[in-house]
Amino acid sequence: MACSLQIVRRICKKAVAALWLASAIWPVQQSAAVPATATSGCQGTVYLTFDTGSQSQAAFIASVLRRHHIRATFFLANEKTVNQDYSLDPTWAAYWKSLVQDGHAFGTHTFDHVYVIRDLPDGRILVRPQFGAHAGQTQSWTAQQYCEELRRVDERFSTLTGHRLDLLWRAPGGKLTPELLKAGEACGYRHVGWSPAGFSGDELSSEKFPNPMLLKKLLDHLSDGDIFMAHLGIWSRRQAWMPENLEPLITGLEQKNFCFATLREHPSYKLKQ
C-alpha cells in the first residue's frame, strides 16, 4: 500500500508541474468568462480557495484571512496531517467551527481524496483513493458511489460544526472526466476548478519554482473574477509557499484595489446554491 501511495504522489507531483507550466494558456477547469461583481471602490474581485492537505499552514491561513477581513472558500477531504491525525477528525472540529464563524464557504474535495483515472465503457468510473480503507487501490465506481463519496464530507462537516457544505466540489488534482462531471452534477454539486492565473504552484519544487517567482506570476496576472487555489499545507515542497507569499499576495492585490469574496458570490456559482 505504501508503495502504491508513493506512486500516486509521484504521478500527481509531475501532473501539477505540467499544469503550472501550461496555466497561462489553459486552466484546470475554465471559469465562465463573466466579470465578478466588484464591491464599490474595487477594481475587481478575486476568489481565494484552499484545499486541505498536510494542514501545516491551516492556522496561519486562518489568521491572515481574519486579519485582512477576507472570506474564502475551503474544499475539504479527510487527509493525513502533520499532527498525525486526519483533517476531518474531531480534533479539527474547533478549527472548522472557527472558519464557519468567520463566514467562509465550504465545498467537498471527496472524503478519501479520490483521484479519477478514466471513464469505463459501461459508464463506471475508474478511481484511486489516496486515503481510507482502500488507499492506493484502483477501483471501479458507479456514479452513485462517487456521489456518496462527495456527501461523506458534508455529513462529517455537519457532525463537526453543525453546518452543511455549500453545493460545490473540487476533484483532487482538478482532474475531470465526462462521467465524473455528470456524477457530481447528478447529486447537486457544481465543480469548481481554478483560473489560469490562480494556480499558486505550492505543490511544485521550490528549487525550480521559488516563492518570489510564484508570487510575481500571481500579482502580474490575477484579474477580476479569477479563482485562486492553494492548499492548507503540502508535504512535498521544501520551502512552504504560505508563510512567505500569502500576505504579500493579499497586500499586493489590495494595493491594486481588488476585493475578495467566497464562491457564494461568484457569478458562475451563486445562483446554484
Rank of each mutant, 00 (worst) to 15 (best):
V82G: 05
L176T: 09
T138S: 13
L168H: 04
A38K: 07
Q255A: 11
L99R: 02
L99H: 01
F260I: 11
S4E: 12
H68S: 01
G136P: 14
W235H: 15
E254G: 00
F228S: 07
E247Q: 09
H68T: 03
N257A: 12
L214F: 05
K217I: 08
Q130D: 07
Q84G: 09
E185D: 12
F260V: 06
W20G: 07
Y146W: 09
S158V: 02
V127T: 13
R9H: 08
G233F: 03
Y47W: 07
H69E: 03
D202W: 00
R170E: 06
I25L: 11
A261H: 05
L246W: 02
R238D: 05
L5I: 15
G44P: 05
L21I: 07
G53D: 00
A105Q: 08
G201Q: 03
H104L: 05
W194C: 11
F209G: 10
P210C: 07
K182M: 07
K270N: 13
K97P: 06
Q55D: 15
A197K: 03
W141I: 06
D119M: 11
K80S: 07
E247F: 03
V127R: 02
A93R: 01
F74E: 00
R67Q: 13
I117H: 12
F157W: 01
F260N: 04
T39C: 05
E185A: 11
F228I: 09
I117P: 03
C147V: 10
H68I: 00
W92L: 02
L204K: 01
P196G: 14
S205R: 14
G103I: 03
R164M: 04
A38L: 13
A24Q: 03
L232P: 02
Y47I: 06
G107V: 08
S87M: 03
Q6R: 15
V116Q: 02
L214D: 00
R156I: 08
F60K: 12
E247K: 05
Q43G: 09
L150I: 05
A171L: 05
A135C: 13
Q43N: 15
H113M: 12
E203K: 08
K216L: 06
S206G: 12
Q84Y: 08
P27C: 02
L150K: 00
L88M: 14
T49E: 00
N245W: 01
V82L: 11
L76E: 10
A261P: 12
L48E: 02
S206E: 01
E79Q: 08
A17H: 04
T37P: 04
A36R: 04
Q139H: 11
K270I: 14
